[in-house]
Design a binder for these strands. Structure first.
Lengths: 205, 205
DNA sequence: AGCAAAGTTAAACAAACGTTTAATTTAAAC
DNA sequence: GTTTAAATTAAACGTTTGTTTAACTTTGCT
């Protein structure tokens, strides 16, 4: 997938507007204006508004694949959890706008169901987590019987909750601006998720 | 707030359609048809589509207040966590449609920011969790230094993740239908969240 | 230079949107 | 039974929606 400058302008404008107004809330005229292009260019390059969303997803999905090579370098399973969560949160946090789009649109009716790219992404990431847990069990550090799906849901959900309730949480946490909020996510929230997963995997009962 | 039969029909229809198509995606004509009323009735009773959403929120919010009395009956802090999570998940799960509406709309621009009812609800629920954690620390069962906001985010986020990714997770978990998914949430997921919170609050490091 | 393809534009398209109007029916009060 | 207000309706309102058209400009190739 190769895009020229103008197409990327449109994709970036769409990302901004979808994230703040949702797919239905952002009109093609809004997007065209944000991207400084004529309205017709969107249909010319992408075919339709729906296909723009689809193309947008395919364009961004690769950014969210967990890099397995990086993880295999780390020694024990406990450290692997730390690295995994750190990379995962950093990746999602650096594409915060995108992640809000995903969260919103993936819930609505059948949109995105066609987008196999995302299903494959989720399955890939699930497999990475599963292998880490299994290696921890093999080492004797982790207890068995914890479903990777639930752990993945916990990690994703906790992060997403911070994305969805930024206004409320930023206020509650006494954080001044958006940058501070991003920093909080990359430090305190990351450590919290790391701690939670390790606590859970080593829990006796 | 008292509503007649027809108004409730509209509110219920709105709940269904907002949940599946989003606020922008559900037209007033859709809602009117779903509720078997004339289109004009929506504006007649609620003023506008925006006010319908606002009224809808205020109508449903009370259902999500944690009942503190029920919790004070339980003895130790560990059991309180179990009861809290159980009631919380059951409450959210029985209003699944609504919760999807909240999740979607609360993220988009400034909508809902005016709805103080929700902020108060969140603060109330946060206070309940805080008091449970503190009582556990007083008992010597829980370790100190865990922010209630993070624990609440984890609980909410994990549950919400199951709401947002039902199609994918239902497939991955091999669950046949919607009822089975609801049961999974009320049993396995509930136990997982309970275990996670207790593991975290008793974790050494 | 000449030509074909790609890029770009303003204008127009029909459809759908939320809302309002004006007319009519129903219900309640005296 | 008459009167007044509330409820209900079909139709129309003016916008906005996503998309297409047709004319025009730019680009790349021989």
């Amino acid at each position: 997938m190769e895009f020229n400058e103008k197409q990327i302008d449109i994709l970036l404008a769409a990302e901004r507007l979808f994230a703040t107004k949702g797919f239905d809330g952002a009109s093609v005229r809004d997007i065209a204006q944000e991207a400084n292009v004529n309205v017709a260019m969107i249909n010319y390059y992408f075919g339709s508004k729906d296909k723009l969303l689809e193309t947008f997803f395919e364009w961004r999905v690769p950014d969210f694949m967990i890099n397995v090579d990086e993880l295999s370098l780390v020694g024990n399973a406990l450290d692997k959890v730390d690295v995994l969560v750190d990379r995962y949160v950093k990746s999602m946090n650096s594409h915060r706008k995108l992640y809000r789009v995903i969260a919103i649109e993936s819930t609505l009716k059948q949109r995105m169901l066609t987008s196999d790219a995302f299903k494959k992404l989720k399955i890939h990431n699930l497999e990475v987590i599963t292998s880490i847990i299994n290696s921890g069990i093999a080492e004797g550090v982790f207890k068995a019987g914890n479903d990777p799906i639930l752990i993945h849901s916990m990690m994703m959900g906790t992060f997403m909750n911070f994305q969805m309730n930024q206004v409320f949480l930023q206020d509650q946490l006494g954080i001044a601006d958006d940058d501070g909020y991003g920093q909080y996510i990359e430090t305190t929230l990351t450590e919290f998720i790391q701690k939670t997963i390790k606590a859970l995997l080593t829990y006796e009962k």
